[in-house]
Simulated scan of single mutants.
Amino acid sequence: MGIAFHKMHGLGNDFVVIDARVQPVSLSEAHIRAIADRNTGVGFDQLIIIEASTEADARMRIFNADGGEVEACGNATRCVARLLGSDVRIETLGGILHGRAAAGGVSIDMGQPRFDWQTIPLAYAMDTRDMPVGWDGLERPSAVNVGNPHVVFFVADTHAVPLDMLGPRIETDALFPERINVNVATITGPSAIDLRVWERGVGLTRACGTGACATAVAAIRLGLATGPVTVSLPGGALEIAWQPGESIIMTGAATHVFSGEIDTGWLG
């Protein structure tokens, strides 16, 4: 018997979603990497496994293409909310998130951002609003944890940054004991940001919901933008609403592409 799955994406950030409430699954890191292969497998940025939850309507587990499990993914949360219904609570390692149908797709209450250096986490104490560090011209970022850790650099032209080279260096720097998602952003208007993201365990991605949240929060915190902020990524735009002391609300599309079945014999 094969493993039933849904192929979905949020602005091109794509997922294989397996509902393990219907059919329990057990996948090793090698299995996940095999399914992630875009030439010989299904292909995805993240594998999502939906499980039963005693604290919410369902539990969502998130695995990057390298097989590692991570805490949160905003685009995936919108996709799971679309699958489960218009008003759902979803348990993640990053906390319980609330999804609702909205004009333009799905809105997710991502909870409150965290700024303390211990909760990013960083290897040692520093001001996460204006960090006195840099890598080859990328300097003085902000750090935000929005269920997973992000560092945000504001630059004159995000497309001029060689993120494919700098991203992996910053991701694995000793300053970030749990690695880091790397965002480079350009302010294009009072409430508009262009963004590119190097995603931890994935690489360059067409869209990153938590990256959009972290970047909008950092911009508002620094006085560079006022919310709600439209964050434009290569795959499309997300609207991020946040005020200090409140939850982040992310709104954007969630697309179901097709359903299929993975041959378990092929996985070995």
Rank of each mutant, 00 (worst) to 15 (best):
G2K: 04
G2F: 05
I3H: 02
K7L: 12
L11F: 00
R21F: 08
A36C: 10
R38H: 12
N39C: 14
V42I: 15
V42N: 01
D45N: 15
I49M: 10
A52G: 06
E55C: 07
M60I: 05
R61D: 12
G67T: 08
G68M: 02
A72S: 15
G74P: 03
C79N: 02
L84R: 02
L84D: 00
D87A: 14
V88T: 13
R89N: 00
E91V: 01
T92K: 07
T92R: 05
L93N: 13
H98I: 15
G99A: 03
A102H: 13
Q112Y: 03
R114Y: 00
R114H: 14
F115W: 15
F115Q: 04
F115C: 06
Q118T: 11
T119S: 15
P121S: 06
P121L: 08
T128Q: 13
M131R: 08
P132G: 04
L138Q: 07
E139Q: 11
A143H: 06
V144I: 15
G147L: 03
N148H: 15
P149C: 06
F153S: 10
A156S: 14
D157I: 00
L166A: 05
G167H: 12
P168F: 03
T172K: 14
A174E: 09
L175R: 14
P177E: 07
E178C: 12
R179V: 01
N181P: 09
N183R: 05
G189L: 03
G189M: 08
S191C: 13
V197I: 11
W198L: 00
V202E: 03
L204Y: 02
A212P: 10
A212V: 11
V217D: 13
V217I: 05
I220K: 10
I220W: 09
G223D: 01
T226Y: 09
T226S: 13
G227E: 13
T230A: 15
T230I: 14
G235K: 11
A237Y: 09
I240D: 07
W242G: 08
P244S: 07
M250I: 04
T251E: 09
T255W: 00
V257Q: 06
V257D: 05
G260W: 02
E261V: 14
G265K: 05
L267C: 00
L267E: 04
G268Q: 02
